[in-house]
């Protein structure tokens, strides 16, 4: 039998099977099998998603906490730096007063103590030199405190990065998880809106978490 006549024979068999109802029986059986497999797949995926839910939930809740901890570091170092600046300012003020006192003392010694004032003058000069050196050290100490600005700026960048990653995860969650298209678009647009304050975004985050996990 050649190829052509074989195909014709096959077609004829199929036509016969359809006419006798066997084809639908077979098709129904196949469809049932497919649906069963699909249902099993959905059930398995649902179970797997439950495992994923938990890390996403805890991760999404950890992000604001991480940002808060970082903000606390900035706030605490800022407070400590202000304290050190205040004390340094006070010592600088005292140091200025001391400069004035020493100047007056030197003048007084020159005018009133005629004899043996060389030694007293030398002592005053030494105190003046220590005072000048202290002033320089205090100013160096002040400038060294600018570390707070530099570390603060770096922490700010990390906070913004953490918030960015959090937003991206939430956008993914909403984009792939929400069936309601209108609600999905609203949430994504709100999440991406840079003008929204952090607190407002936190409300949105809570809405999303409620939508997905509660």
């Amino acid at each position: 039998m050649n190829k052509k006549s074989y195909s014709v024979k096959k077609l004829a068999d199929v036509a016969k099977a359809i006419s006798e109802g066997d084809f639908y029986k077979e098709a129904n059986l196949k469809l049932k099998g497919e649906l069963k497999r699909l249902a099993k797949y959905i059930e398995e995926t649902r179970k797997k998603l439950q495992y994923i839910d938990s890390p996403i939930k805890s991760t999404t809740k950890s992000f604001p906490e991480a940002s808060m901890q970082l903000s606390d570091i900035t706030r605490q170092t800022e407070e400590a730096t202000h304290k050190v600046i205040s004390l340094t300012e006070k010592i600088l003020d005292d140091q200025s007063r001391l400069t004035e006192i020493l100047k007056n003392l030197k003048k007084f010694v020159s005018n009133n103590i005629k004899k043996e004032n060389k030694e007293i003058k030398s002592i005053i000069n030494n105190i003046q030199n220590i005072n000048i050196s202290n002033k320089k050290d205090l100013i160096d100490l002040l400038t060294a405190l600018s570390f707070q600005d530099l570390t603060g700026q770096k922490i700010k960048k990390i906070i913004s990065l953490v918030q960015d990653v959090e937003t991206k995860i939430l956008v993914l969650l909403v984009s792939f998880g929400l069936v309601d298209k209108k609600k999905r678009e609203e949430m994504v647009s709100e999440l991406k809106d840079p003008s929204k304050s952090i607190d407002l975004k936190q409300d949105l985050v809570d809405d999303i978490l409620a939508e997905f996990f509660e």
Partner: peptide, 17 residues
């Protein structure tokens, strides 16, 4: 002009000195 109050204070103090 600086958003960090510590930095403003530091610069102000140096300028005063």
């Amino acid at each position: 002009v600086d958003d960090f109050s510590t930095m403003r204070r530091i610069i102000k103090n140096i300028l005063k000195q």
